[in-house]
Design a protein around this nucleic acid. Structure first.
Lengths: 373, 373
DNA sequence: GCGACTACTGAAAACGTTTTCAAATTATTG
DNA sequence: CAATAATTTGAAAACGTTTTCAGTAGTCGC
């Protein structure tokens, strides 16, 4: 039996009447026929189902199903027979049917702001490694920091009956999904959200390290650049302010949409205004990049005119001249931990909320050399 | 009715007997109970199905189904009634059931070598944008250039009944899947494979541009670094060789595993050996990075001691000192085109093979300044 | 007012599995 | 050896949809 997209058109009695064929133009009919007989990727034979395996092995559906999935509920000899028959027929399970019946999708969702952000790329790679190790699929979505998209994707995850979701929410996500309960556990990464488990950089410690380092190297007027779309921007901002106060210094923080262009614009204006700080901390890779470009654009020297440090140890930070001092995030660890926590919570839903703060590593490079002036 | 993971344990007669509870330690029993009554994310009521919507609206299953999916097969008034009922009940379709019955998974697969490679990140972002625009899910897999993983993921895609797969195969993939036919169309990106549609950079043109540019700037002894795991490495190598010959120059190409570390090692050895070329072309972002590091490590000046150019206009290439001359790949275009071709082929399976070569852009920067020596 | 068509609806089958329930067989125990 | 338990199997129900098929009501043209 041939299974093609247009099977109906060619095989059902309804279309054996003159009318449909007569009504269609010659060209269309031709294409239809080609489609029908093209063996390029549609196999010509019906794919074997568990039923066929049962018939071939002389056993019942139930037994075959058990042999193929369970472990130990079936006689080893029988199991081998089933496996052999399945192999011979080239049987492949239909995951949709399996999921429908078993109510287990073996799938998790991963909603990140933008996969092009190297931080998320690294994290998601870790998540995927862990997932596929456990035979779990990952559905990846980009929210673009857009609360509407976030809500849509969360709804989608419901429909997909995912077992859980790992998520980096925007600030507004909290309000948007407040009160909503999901059929799956939620683990947030990088940013906190409501009462969901969270794994993120230890922001307080990270900003402490950066400020301490800059102060130790003689900088006093230290400015900060923090994202205004995420709880993390907020957390880093607060940590920066308190670290500055601890040193008896006056914080000078600017909040912005965390994109390269916005940072370049903002830092440019800041520099042009003439009240530029002695050192600048950028709270993520993109804003650090924007800041660097703005400084370069104006022909200023780092760190002599202005020192620069940031968060996210991206490859380029080491290659630029001068190399940039950064806090390296344990990206792979974050993803791996998130996945572990998710698996754990799926099995033990009642655990109380856990927040894991992972330490970043201060990587000192030339952009924050001791102040000479 | 409560649906929890351990429903069976609490409700079936089998476990109402003393034995299981008696056998378990107190702690375990406690956790089980917590799980049962935890409303944290498992909703306490059964999710409404299409059946409930039918009951609520006083219509049949069939009509409700049609109202929810079809367009025009149902009276508009009826449709509104259904929609209202669905809304009131908070109905969400079960995608597994829908897919099982309709045999349409509305899902495509995306198998890339490594999502951490910015090239693939950019491409996959384009693919996902296009996919979600069409209401299609994307299943992302990293093959790590491992033919065994590739084969495994392709089999997985079969089981997922995906509508199609976009794939960046290794060189050996061809041999591995030769003769195999899939139930879905395959579009390869970046690299060719068998008779599958392909969309990639116009490698010949790209290498021509690079070599021409270097020659025009006075370089003669131009070395090349090319990956040995992909058809693309091969294609770029061949294009390089023919471009060199066209100029009457002797090619000096090295093949390697295309990773940063391997490139750094190889270029380091090359430099140490004393026969380093005047200019070096690296065939992708990772090898370019490795080459840059090796050159830096030895304190050599670019381009005075050795000029450097590559393929892939990654953000860092512009920021390093000196900025690097590269061929920028139309990454977003590649993904977008691949998706378009896939959709097209799903609808018209019989089309003959199409290979799309997109032009890259030569971005001239300081690393290939005219030769002064 | 009749036949033919159209627009709409519902009952029931189907999709390919897993799971339940009960039965049959074999092993274990006192 | 009888009684009980454990192991292994199969028939049939279930999962939540879409699709087929058939039917009913309304409309149109003559």
């Amino acid at each position: 039996m041939v299974y093609t997209a247009d099977k109906r058109r060619c095989l059902t009695p309804e279309t054996d009447k003159i009318q449909p064929y007569g009504a269609s133009q010659a060209g269309v009919t031709l294409i239809d026929l080609q489609k029908t007989f093209s063996g390029f990727y549609r196999s010509m034979v019906m794919k074997p189902s568990i039923k066929d395996v049962a018939a071939a092995s002389g056993l019942s559906l139930a037994t075959v199903s058990r042999a193929l999935t369970d472990n130990g509920l079936v006689n080893e000899q029988t199991r081998q027979k089933v496996l052999a028959a399945a192999e011979a027929l080239g049987y492949r399970p239909n995951l949709q049917a399996r999921r429908l019946r078993s109510k287990q999708s073996q799938t998790i969702g991963l909603i990140v702001a933008d996969i092009r952000n190297p931080f998320f790329t690294a994290v998601s790679r870790a998540i995927e490694d862990a997932a596929y190790r456990e035979g779990i699929r990952v559905l990846l979505c980009n929210s673009d920091e857009d609360p509407a998209k976030e809500a849509m994707y969360l709804r989608l995850m419901q429909e997909e009956q995912v077992g859980g979701v790992i998520f980096s929410p925007t600030l507004s996500a909290g309000a948007a999904i407040a009160g909503t309960t999901f059929d799956f556990p939620l683990i947030t990464i990088d940013r906190a959200l409501g009462d969901a488990d969270c794994v993120a950089l230890n922001n307080h410690e990270a900003l402490d390290k950066l400020v301490d380092h800059l102060v130790a190297n003689g900088y006093r007027r230290i400015g900060g650049l923090f994202g205004n779309t995420s709880a993390t921007g907020q957390a880093r901002h607060d940590a920066y302010v308190s670290a500055m106060h601890r040193h008896g210094l006056t914080p000078d923080a600017r909040r912005l949409v965390p994109t390269m262009d916005a940072a370049q614009q903002l830092v440019g204006d800041w520099l042009d205004a003439g009240d530029a700080p002695e050192a600048l901390i950028a709270s993520n890779g993109l804003t650090l990049l924007g800041a660097m470009r703005a400084i370069r654009q104006r022909g200023l020297r780092i760190p002599d005119d202005i020192a620069l440090a940031g968060i996210d140890n991206e490859a380029w930070t080491e290659l630029v001249e001068p190399a940039l001092t950064v806090i390296g995030q344990p990206t792979y660890d974050i993803g791996d931990t998130a996945m572990r926590m998710l698996m754990n919570r799926i099995h033990e839903p009642a655990l109380s909320r856990r927040v894991v703060a992972l330490s970043g590593e201060l990587i000192v490079r030339d952009s924050t050399r001791p102040r000479t002036a």
